[in-house]
Amino acid sequence: MSDFRPGAPAAKGLLDKVADEDTDITSSRRGGGGAGIPGGAPAPRRPFRRYFRETGWRHLIGIVVGIFAIFPLLYVLSASFNPNGTLLTANGLFQRVSFDSYVSLFTSAQHPYGAWFLNTLIIGLITAAGTVFLGALAAYSFSRMRFTGRRFGLTTLLVVQMFPQLLAVVAIFLLMVAIGDIFPAIGLNSQIGLIMVYLGGALGVNTYLMYGFFNTVPSSIDEAAKIDGAGHARIFFTIILRLVAPILAVVGLLSFIGTSSEFVLASVILIDPDKQTLAVGLYKFISDEFSKNWSVFAAGAVLAAILPVALFLSLQRYIVGGLTAGSVK
C-alpha cells in the first residue's frame, strides 16, 4: 500500500541515510577504530604522575580523612571489649576481647542502663516530633501569612538563638521548681517538664530553618487550593507538609541527636536515676573518684550510638532528596 502523505518520500530517504551512517560507524568501531569500546582496543593507561595530578591526590585525601574519622570509633569499640576497664591498655586494638562490660550494663542495680536507654528514646522521639510539628506551624505562618510584627518576630527568633541555652540554666531551674509546687507532673524531676524545656529552646533556629525552605514552595499551589475551597489548615496538612518532607526529616534528625546527647539541662532537671537519660547516666560510670570504669562507659556509648545511626539511615533518602530538591526549587 503506497503512502500518499506529503513529504513521505523525503522523510523515508532521510531515515535511510541516517541508518546507513550508523551502520558505517558501527562497522568502523568493530574494526578496532574506537578505543575503550567493547570489542575495540583498550584505552591506554595514564602515566602515574598524570593520574596523581588529576585524580590521585583526591583519593589520597579521602583515604586519610576516612582513617581519621574511623579510628576514634575503632578505639572506643576496642575499649568496650577491654576487660581491664581502662583506656590506657586499649592502645593495642582488640588485643583482648571480652563481653563483660556489655553484661555489666544490664546487670548493675545502681546503674539502670535499660531505663536510661528507654528514657532517651521516649524523650528524644517526643521532642523531635514536637519540634517538627510546632516549627512547621510557625514556619508556615511566617511564610504564607502577612501580619503585624512578622519581621520583628523573625528577627527576634534569630537574635535569641545567639545566646546559648546554658546561660539560662539557673533561671530554668528556678522556674521548674516554682512550677513543680503547683503542677508536680511538669515541674522539677519530671520528663514531661524536660521535654517542654527542650521544645521551647529548639523552636527558634528550627523555625527559621523551615521558614527558608517553605519559601521555596511556590505560593501558586496555595492559591490553586484556595480556589478549590481549601483553608489554611487543609493546605498545610495535605499539601505543604508533603512538599517539605525533606526539611522535616532534617529537623527531626537534628532534634533527636541534640536531645539524646544533651547533658546540662537533663542533669539539672532529672534527679531520680530511673528518670535520667543516657548522657547523664553514662557519666556516673566515670564520675566516681575510685571506681572509674571506662570499659563499661565505652560499651554504653557504643550501644547509645545505635539510636541516631538507625534514625539517620531511616531518614537518609529524605535528607538526600532535600539537598537535591531544595537546590532547584
Rank of each mutant, 00 (worst) to 15 (best):
F4N: 12
G7P: 09
A10C: 02
G13F: 00
D16H: 08
D20C: 10
E21A: 12
S28P: 00
S28C: 11
S28E: 14
G36R: 11
G36F: 03
G39M: 06
P42C: 06
P44R: 02
F52N: 07
W57A: 08
L60Q: 09
I63H: 10
V64D: 05
G66V: 09
G66W: 09
I70S: 08
F71D: 01
P72K: 02
L77K: 00
A79S: 13
S80F: 10
N82S: 09
N84A: 14
A90E: 00
R96Q: 10
F99C: 01
V103S: 13
F106P: 00
F106Q: 07
Y113R: 02
W116G: 02
T120P: 00
L121H: 05
I122P: 01
I122L: 12
I122A: 15
L125G: 02
I126T: 13
I126E: 02
A128Y: 06
V132R: 00
Y140R: 04
F142Y: 12
F142T: 01
S143Y: 01
R144S: 04
F147H: 06
T148Q: 08
F152D: 06
L154A: 04
T155H: 05
L158P: 00
V159N: 04
V160T: 09
V160G: 04
Q165E: 11
V170D: 04
L174S: 05
V177C: 00
A178Q: 15
A178K: 09
G180T: 10
G180K: 08
F183D: 04
I186M: 04
L188R: 07
Q191S: 11
Q191T: 13
G193L: 09
L194M: 12
L194P: 01
M196T: 09
M196D: 02
Y198W: 08
Y198I: 01
Y208W: 14
L209R: 05
Y211I: 05
G212V: 07
F213P: 04
F214W: 06
N215Q: 15
T216V: 07
P218Q: 10
S219A: 12
S219F: 07
I227M: 11
G229C: 11
A230D: 11
H232F: 15
I239F: 04
R242I: 02
R242Q: 08
A245V: 07
I247T: 01
L248Y: 03
V250F: 15
G252D: 00
L254W: 11
L254R: 05
S255D: 03
F263T: 09
A266C: 14
D274Y: 13
D274S: 13
D274E: 15
D274V: 10
A279M: 13
E289F: 11
K292C: 07
K292T: 15
A301L: 12
V302H: 09
A304L: 03
A305M: 14
P308M: 10
L311P: 05
S314H: 06
Q316A: 10
Q316W: 07
Y318L: 15
G321R: 08
G321S: 10
G322A: 09
T324F: 06
T324Y: 00
S327D: 07
